[in-house]
Nucleic acid binder design. Structure first.
Lengths: 338, 338
DNA sequence: TTTGCATATGTAAGCGCTTACACTCGCATT
DNA sequence: AATGCGAGTGTAAGCGCTTACATATGCAAA
């Protein structure tokens, strides 16, 4: 930690092995172009010197980094973590590395981190959702950086996306809820601003509500950040309203979990006194009590498919292709016919 | 996506602004060394060309990347995600960037990723736990890469660590459990192999058990991966034993959540029929029913402190300093006096 | 006016790799 | 014996930056 140790370079290896740097480089990257004898000689030198190639130099010379960048709103959200883990697993299997940043749901920060990752030579990018400044997309296009948007589905094929239609999925669930006799719905949504997923889900409920001939003014909505405790607090607020809801539809399972927890603490029986629905189908959903009715999203699959698409775009300069994934309603005990 | 677009370089900016590349570089890195007039001229050129510095080239020339690497077992574990988020926030505030990889609890993969990150020019590294091949530590030392180990606490100051004593903490909880009258404890531990945190926690229970004069053979233990469902399955196994436990101590809150869920499904009342304890104090712990008695770990603080230490080691070539964080038992309803 | 010094800028040498191109062999073909 | 060719290797030119050093400029002090 005191004096700079000497880190072996390609040159050192070349000297030690008595060959040129070009040959060493070939041993490392295109073994078949080198005679077996030289190869073993070089590899020995590599071994004994403890040589590791300098990535920056390599990326610079080869103009290819075999690195893919991903920017997610926050790692603290289990669904992103899960999808990202699958994404990374697939990338590693294909010889790519992953760089992760989180933007804390701030578009400014995200834009900056996109530049960061591009500056780092990312061969491709994974972004969450589609809502962002047009300038960002232009920047990416001008630089020719393949990009896929996940957790979103945009029929408009301007951008490659891998995901599902949040709005349609939530509308399906809301239709179901209304079908089951509920007429007094209250909504606890994630913060909609700067989060298209949350916005679409909320819109899905509103679509259904209006399609059934109800007035938007009669649909109580609370927006609150992604945290169990916030779901709990929002429930408490809604339940004290003049017109008590018969069902609480939540923008995600985490908020729903908070609702169930607080409902029980306050002496309400879910689903007899009040029904609750979520979205995402996190692992916890089937283990809370009562088990949560929610929309199942294949997070891991999404990560995997996103990786495949991205690699395809990079290696085959393939055209942008979007993949719509299937989501479905997972009926569990927390939602009851009225 | 078809033809390679031209990406502006420092040279382009220099030409556009009518100055040398050195000056442009100074404008970007040491503004105070440049006259205001030139600065604005250059910045204009930067702007109009849409120039972004090439990170690899910069890191190579400056021999400093302002990048820190972190390798965690998996992003799917909320506690790492949480600590890492705090870690990153602190790094960003100090002008550093974070590269994340996950090793899937495989030492081989971790070693490889350490090399990766070092090859990428990481100025420092964050690793989880202390248990790894000595060769890895040697490699790091030879290259002079500042490294801090988190989620672990090693009095042996050979390595800088930020964390707590998993073993002592769990022992404290076990002592408490035994004090409360429990004599039939069963343990559901995370997989101990290649995971020193899990191993230490388990050892903590065993320490207490033996210190109270009991025989290790009478302490049923199941090891199972970090997943709610696995906790549930393990519970089912334990509860069908000849000698039914009065308390189930789990290596983490996730497993404990599974236990509580399955216990309820099977008609057991927690804590009247059986008590349950966890470890970590994830957000969910106080929202499950009954609320979970657990060991509170300051994950976010850990991430923050780890970032501070690491930056200190990098910038001031500071000596390795370890930080032991306080953890405490969070008594909640799931643990009852016998 | 000369000198000195601080400030602003330019010149050019790398940083550690990859790769186009040139070169040298040995061997099969004519 | 002359020729061609492919396989293996070396030479050297960058990749896009930073920075030590050289140079130029302006202004205060002598």
């Amino acid at each position: 930690m005191h004096e700079t140790p000497h880190i072996p370079t390609l040159d050192d290896v070349a000297n030690a092995a008595g060959v040129s740097t070009a040959t060493v480089s070939r041993c490392l990257n295109e073994k078949q172009k080198v005679s077996p004898k030289t190869l073993s000689k070089v590899m020995e030198a590599v071994e004994s010197l403890g040589y590791t190639p300098n990535f920056n130099a390599r990326a610079m010379a080869a103009k290819q980094s075999h690195t893919i960048g991903a920017i997610i709103p926050t790692m603290e959200n289990a669904i992103f973590a899960r999808g990202l883990q699958a994404f990374q697993e697939k990338l590693l299997a294909e010889g790519y590395n992953l760089l992760v940043s989180s933007s804390a749901y701030q578009p400014k920060l995200e834009a900056q981190q996109i530049r960061e990752l591009v500056a780092r030579g990312a061969d491709g990018l994974l972004l969450i959702g589609y809502e962002r400044d047009e300038a960002v997309y232009e920047y990416l296009a001008r630089r020719g950086i393949p990009t896929v948007l996940a957790w979103a589905w945009i029929p408009d094929s301007k951008h490659a996306s891998v995901g599902f239609d949040n709005r349609a999925a939530m509308r399906l669930l809301a239709d179901k809820v209304i079908d089951m006799g509920h007429r007094r719905i209250a909504v606890i949504s994630g913060i909609v601003d700067g989060n298209d997923r949350a916005a679409e889900r909320l819109a899905g409920i509103q679509d259904s509500w209006q399609a059934h001939g109800f007035d938007l003014h009669d649909l109580p909505i609370i927006q609150t950040p992604y945290e169990i405790e916030n779901g709990a607090a929002a429930f408490e607020q809604l339940i004290h309203a003049d017109v008590k809801p018969t069902v609480i539809m939540c923008g995600n399972d985490v908020l729903a979990t908070g609702v169930i927890s607080r409902a029980r603490d306050l002496g309400f029986n879910v689903p007899n006194d009040i029904s609750v629905t979520g979205f995402d189908d996190i692992e916890l959903a089937k283990h809370v009590y009562p088990a949560l009715t929610t929309v199942h999203v294949p997070h891991r699959q999404m990560g995997r498919v996103a990786a495949e698409s991205l690699i395809d775009m990079i290696e085959n300069r393939g055209e942008k292709v979007s993949h719509q994934l299937d989501v479905f309603i997972e009926m569990r005990a927390s939602l009851q016919r009225l």
